[in-house]
Design a protein around this nucleic acid. Structure first.
Lengths: 189, 189
DNA sequence: CGGATTCTGGAACGAACGCTACAAAATTCG
DNA sequence: CGAATTTTGTAGCGTTCGTTCCAGAATCCG
């Protein structure tokens, strides 16, 4: 063996997530990252490869800690229809509380880097499809009609809320976006 | 008077729009712009100010030529409900034909630059609200119930479609997002 | 302890960034 | 034709970019 790392890789990765989340991929410099992560440039390249690889790791960590955690938590605590409603409500609350309008790293990446990087684009599309699958699963369980289309619709509504939130939309607008979608949950087979 | 410009300002502006549209604000360099516009750097700074001012002009031109043109054209050619349906259908068709996934400059800017630039953020929010007003106007004319919320909902759905299109979504998904929203047009007062 | 291996800070790389300075070229007016 | 004014190409400004190199520090195995 040899010398041990002096920093916690996961903790540093969390700092990298915050950087990419707040500023986007292009606008985040390697120096921004090393400063926030509290490590030197050599350590960053030694531990993660390069900026792009670090971004891919950050994306994965964000998906695990934000999206998948939320899905698991809501699905465990609520019945199907309530889980969907709670998901949208939680996103709206977080968006309104989000003073610096970071939005969602997945959505930001979908517009920022996905179109210019096929590999990362596929990863992002896969994460978004996990959200759609969550909707689909719970729509089926609640015997909602047209679950296939409605799950796509709910994903679209979610993404729309995220975009509007980044332009500083108010609560009334965001809830207006969501409410007609929630009404669909009452259309049973 | 003095020496005349050797280039067409509007034509050059169209080239700038294409650059920002395809690559985003940060990822577009001044050299990318001068190359695409066919002018030297001095001419660019002389005619438009700086990169940010050129972006603001590009945004305005895009809004006039893409969004407002579409709204005026569809509103002139269709009855209210058909105008809304045609708007969504046209966005889906364009998104599917858009091989390099440029999406919509307004939506891209809403995530890319709006959160980091308050002035441009307000401009983008204003353009998005013009789209919502188009929905609202036509919902009212068609006596659709809950026009206020439904107009917000349609805007959200539109933005969601734009985001999904940038990750390479297929026709079935995009139409699935739109269809439940279109069904709302049949809920009369 | 000594050799092997890995991690770290600091300096520096070439390239690209947004932008400006400057002088030559082009135009209008007297 | 000049004087005045604006546009143009070129060159270069200082800064920052992502990345690499390297010597030294730290750790494990024998």
């Amino acid at each position: 063996m040899a010398r041990l790392k002096e920093f916690d890789e996961d903790r540093a990765l969390d700092a990298a997530v915050d950087c990419f989340w707040a500023r986007g991929y292009e606008a985040t410099s390697v120096r921004d990252l090393t400063d926030a992560m509290g490590i030197g440039g050599a350590s960053l390249y030694n531990a993660y490869g390069d900026k792009r690889a670090l971004f891919a790791r950050s994306l994965e960590r964000y998906a695990n800690r934000s999206m998948r955690e939320r899905i698991a938590r809501l699905e465990a605590a609520h019945r199907p229809k309530e889980a969907i409603a709670a998901f949208l409500a939680e996103i709206i609350e977080r968006s309104l509380k989000d003073r610096d309008r970071k939005g969602c790293l997945l959505v930001n990446s979908a517009l920022d880097v996905a179109p210019h990087d096929a590999a990362i684009g596929k990863v992002v599309a896969g994460y978004l499809d996990e959200i759609r699958a969550f909707f689909r699963r719970n729509l089926d369980a609640a015997h909602v009609a047209n679950a296939d289309e409605v799950s796509a619709h709910l994903l679209g509504v979610l993404l729309g809320i995220r975009v509007l939130a980044r332009t500083g939309a108010r609560r009334k607008l965001l809830e207006g976006v969501a409410r007609p979608a929630l009404a669909l949950l009452e259309t049973h087979q």
